[in-house]
């Protein structure tokens, strides 16, 4: 959902959500990174967590007047210079469709495209890591072709395996560990995105990028 102007809302007494206006773009995300960098230092803020063209600020304690923080964020948004991050790029071989992508049929049905068209469009872009979230090491990627966008599932699936490549709305990503998800799995790959014994524990950071290489297409 997009709006003309930035929006803020409360996540209970725990956090505050800031949502940038407009279509999801890398330029907007660079402003989000810049605001996150500044807002992490606001008094009373425990953590600034970038999402997809949005930002969550987690409170140390619920502030007496959250609207003061909201106002400060909106002012910052108007003046901040985008923070360009040029990271590294990794290639991931993907098996598309079949057992590797049990929800490919749903994407075919929604988009009206063939498996080959979907695979071609999904593997064409270089995806920028916009943010980490969902589960340890998971990367939210920007740059998916809007023509293969498919709504999240009506009922989330209780267990999607590590390495699952999936589409949720206009986004795509790769599961970093087994777990529940509401996204449509279209393929699978193998990589360790997170290792608690590594420093930093997450393989990729915002600004890094991923290219999906077609290993095979199962029908």
């Amino acid at each position: 959902m997009t709006a003309d102007r930035p929006r803020t809302s409360l996540l209970g007494t725990t956090a505050l959500l800031f949502e940038a206006p407009g279509e999801t773009t890398l330029e907007t995300q660079r402003r989000i990174w810049a605001v996150a960098h500044e807002a992490a230092g606001f008094p009373g803020v425990r953590e600034a967590v970038p999402g997809m063209n949005n930002l969550m600020l987690v409170f140390v304690e619920p502030p007496r007047r959250p609207e003061e923080i909201e106002q400060r964020l909106l002012e910052l948004w108007n003046v901040v210079a985008p923070l360009p991050i040029a990271g590294r790029c990794i290639d991931l071989p993907v098996a598309y469709g079949g057992e590797a992508g049990p929800h490919m049929a749903d994407v075919i049905e929604h988009t009206g495209m063939s498996v080959d068209e979907i695979v071609e469009r999904h593997s064409a872009p270089t995806y920028i890591v916009f943010a980490l979230g969902s589960h340890p090491g998971y990367c939210y990627l920007g740059g998916m072709d809007a023509r293969i966008a498919t709504p999240r599932r009506k009922v989330p699936v209780l267990k999607i395996p590590r390495g699952a490549v999936s589409i949720g709305g206009s986004q795509t990503g790769v599961s970093a560990s087994d777990g529940p998800s509401g996204w449509n799995t279209i393929g699978s790959t193998q990589i360790a995105f997170f290792d608690v014994n590594r420093s930093p524990p997450a393989l990729l950071q915002p600004g890094d990028s991923i290219r999906f290489k077609v290993a095979r297409v199962l029908r």
Binding site: A15, M52, N54, G133, R152, R153, K154, V155, P156, G169
Partner: peptide, 17 residues
Amino acid sequence: ELRSHGIVPGVIQVPHG
């Protein structure tokens, strides 16, 4: 359809169902 964003324990989500 929302863009992915930070959430916290306590958030009441309503999936399509």
